[in-house]
Write a protein that binds this DNA or RNA. Structure first.
Lengths: 130, 130
DNA sequence: TTACATAATGTTATATTATAACAATTTTAA
DNA sequence: TTAAAATTGTTATAATATAACATTATGTAA
């Protein structure tokens, strides 16, 4: 016997909401939107978010304190994230660029240190806002 | 007549504190530390921080909600920031690597869009913690 | 110098984001 | 079937950040 769906009830509810959203969602926006499904308090939301981030199903956009579903080859590279963020309309797109990922994943700093994880946020104007 | 020092009183106090710190400082840590100098309320701190970020004297480490002084050629490239962050001791170093900066500054996404600003945060273990 | 605009400051209150702590229940795996 | 691990529910509170408004200081141009 095995589980094909490894998300718990709350995790699934919150993932579904984020996944169908076209824009990053904030924790309290999520809370507001899932209250009708019985998720009533911040810790329930934050716990689900933490787990979803941990498993790579979603990413946190640090500069916005908001969450987006992973669009990148089903989350294989959640340790190497890159996003483009429009400074006008706030739109966020996950960047999926093998060369960029490779370049950054193999980056060594001046002391020769390599890093096992990175997060990159680009800021500019999206096509619509230009 | 000209001013050689373009920081206001509160900006200077807060910059000095951040600049002499060996680790990123959080806004309320800063507030606590400058109360003896007459800065009493959060808005005073956040306003100074905003201005210092804007002028490139300091950077915000988004994943930590904390601030560090710019160490990079006197802040010429505050639109292209990169940091290494130790996941164990929380140490943060600004990365100053011309090749990396050039690579990212000239990055084009799949739609051909270029970005005028980026922030990159690497996570791993620093030399001491390895 | 005056006077106008802009920037900076001081202050109170409040909004937003996130976690601590603890009890109960469900799921997993030995 | 039972013990461990994960998840849930709940209340309270901690930590981060901004709104709004009054005042003072500074820069600039007539």
């Amino acid at each position: 016997m095995f589980k094909e769906n490894n998300l718990s009830k709350n995790q699934q509810i919150i993932f579904d909401l984020i996944n169908k959203s076209s824009e990053p969602l904030k924790a309290y926006t999520i809370l507001f939107n899932v209250q009708k499904k019985g998720i009533k308090a911040p810790p329930q939301v934050y716990r689900a978010l933490d787990k979803l981030v941990e498993t790579g199903k979603i990413h946190k956009i640090e500069s916005k304190n908001a969450f987006v579903a992973c669009r990148n080859s089903n989350c294989e590279i959640s340790k190497a994230t890159a996003f483009s963020i429009c400074e006008s309309c706030e739109m966020v797109d996950e960047i999926s660029d093998a060369k960029l990922t490779k370049y950054l994943s193999s980056f060594n700093d001046k002391k020769g240190t390599k890093y096992k994880r990175f997060n990159l946020e680009f800021f500019g104007l999206c096509k619509k806002c230009k």
